[in-house]
Design a protein around this nucleic acid. Sequence first.
DNA 1: GCCGGTCAAGGTCTT
DNA 2: AAGACCTTGACCGGC
Length: 291
Amino acid sequence: MRLGYPCINRQLACTFSTFRLKNFSEEKLIETIQKNLINLQKILSFNIKHGLYFFRISSDLIPFASHTICKYPWQMAFARTLAGIGQFIKKYQIRISMHPSQFVIINANDPAIIQNSIAELQYHANLLDALELDETAKIQIHVGGAYGNKMQAMTRFIDNYQKLSLPIQKRLVIENDDRLFSLHDCLFIHRHIGIPIIFDNLHHECLHNQESLAEAFSIAESTWHKDDGVMMLDYSSQAVGAPKGKHTESLDAEHFKRFLQAIPHHHCDVMLEVKDKEVSALRAIELLNHA
DNA sequence: GCCGGTCAAGGTCTT
DNA sequence: AAGACCTTGACCGGC
């Protein structure tokens, strides 16, 4: 089991800079990409040193990459640096994921939203390609909106998925969400197009069809093929007294131990979705080693 | 310096 | 109707 945390490292004060659209200039973009790539390498080095072998790369790595304002050929301009970081990732067998924002909605009714979503997915695929990573590096999204008719919304997802370019298709995975599309719904989609399901335990607690954690794990696992790598999971626990679905600030050790015991085996990669990032990830490694 | 309104982009639920 | 929530709070104008 590889453990990881999303996007930013607090100890290193490594975040990914962006800027306002109105301040866009090629110079500012280049400067920001340079800075962000240095920070990405710093975080990955930190992670190796601390035994964290799963990482979610921020979508902000290349700001405005999918916006029409961006004409800069970043993929070519930073080809060597990106390939170099990719070499590091492969050398240490780090698992990589990305999670585009809520604006990426494949099953939207509005063609403009779909078009923007595809452009954003293409950016994510281009980035992972520029890192020269194989298709075990995944891009995770939710099914999207329900628009008052879930079955139609799922059918639209299936139809629109089949129109996506191959580089996007081979990296795309869907995550069960906490309000609309359960694991069961994701499985329905999987059966039509073969897309793997990334399982989120907290979302499953919020919305499910009576499957136990162990059952849900096995169902999700069955959707991952050999070329996809071992299944990925998003792990978090409910913040007490907060709105349903809100993550805790830091790792709930007892909950995580129960999670490790409840799943059938540990041949999987677990993304810890907690606010304090690497701090909790390091505690999780301790718990895993003593499990 | 630092505070706080605002930021490319949606959809849903809660208050 | 407005705010919170989800990806990851950070940017930057105004004081």
